[in-house]
Amino acid sequence: MQPIIEIRGLKKTYASGFQALKGVDLDIRRGEILALLGPNGAGKTTLISIVCGIVRATAGSVTVDGHDILRDWRAARSLIGLVPQELTTEAFESVWATVSFSRGLFGKPPNPVVIERILKDLSLWDKRDTKVMALSGGMKRRVLIAKALSHEPRILFLDEPTAGVDVELRRGMWEMIGRLRESGVTIILTTHYIEEAEEMADSIGVISGGRIVLVEQKAALMEKLGKRLLTLQLQNPLDAIPAELADFPLTLSEGGRELVYRFDTQNERTGIAGLLRKLGDHGINYTNLRTEESSLEEIFVSLVRERA
């Protein structure tokens, strides 16, 4: 199936001369949740802003469901909803008015039923007549989401949707994003919270210094780059790794009370059986053992560090 968004050779140099994007190629699959991870200043917001028509690209092309964002801008933009990074809301309008306004702006006839459903989904229904400026930060964020959803877009961009949102609200937002995905909306979100990507995303894109470092399905990524650890709690602490075990990548921790074995998930043969046999041969007894997978966070940190 054709990707819903195709980005080719996208570059952006700001008027200041700063090059924020240095040639980005990216395909976004229909109906998936793509998490764009990257440190501050990586170019996430710039990339989103270009796709949405807020910033002009210096070079390259973007198509949205086959529509070029410049030649066929009306069709392209009608498909997209954007929740910006900054909490920029009107002040004096009611929640209802500002959300209805957005729907009209995107060319849809008024539809109170849709607006009502969106406000209820976002727990804003009770606040529909409240002026936006009287809302808390978390609620303003949800108003922005409601505005972005008001015209029933096929693609939703969320630029750091949960920055500064407390844990409980964050959970609620994840659930909402999950429901949207089930209804077939393609979702692109940028985030600092790796756990967020880990929890929700189908694909992970890592952007750093204006370049896409990698895009991969989450499961494949964890598989490919993940490391696993086997930790053995020893009955008798060791001072050093016995010479007989030098072939294995082992380290001691917890003051010699734990033996940690690191192995690649990609290897068919983990070597665990061999290790355990050798331990038995040398009379090293353990009381407990556990395995751990490295988190996306560790993968991410090592990736960005590698390229820096």
């Binding site: 949405c52 028509g53 807020i54 801008w73 009306r74 069709a75 933009r77 009608s78 997209i80 954007l82 910006p84 900054e86 920029t88 809301t89 009107e90 002040a91 957005s102 702006l105 995107f106 060319g107 505005k147």
Partner: peptide, 17 residues
């Protein structure tokens, strides 16, 4: 006003000529 408050993003991203 929308330029000042930043809400102009919506107008710029909308299918509006």
């Amino acid at each position: 006003m929308p330029r000042y408050s930043g809400t102009i993003y919506e107008l710029l991203s909308a299918p509006v000529s």
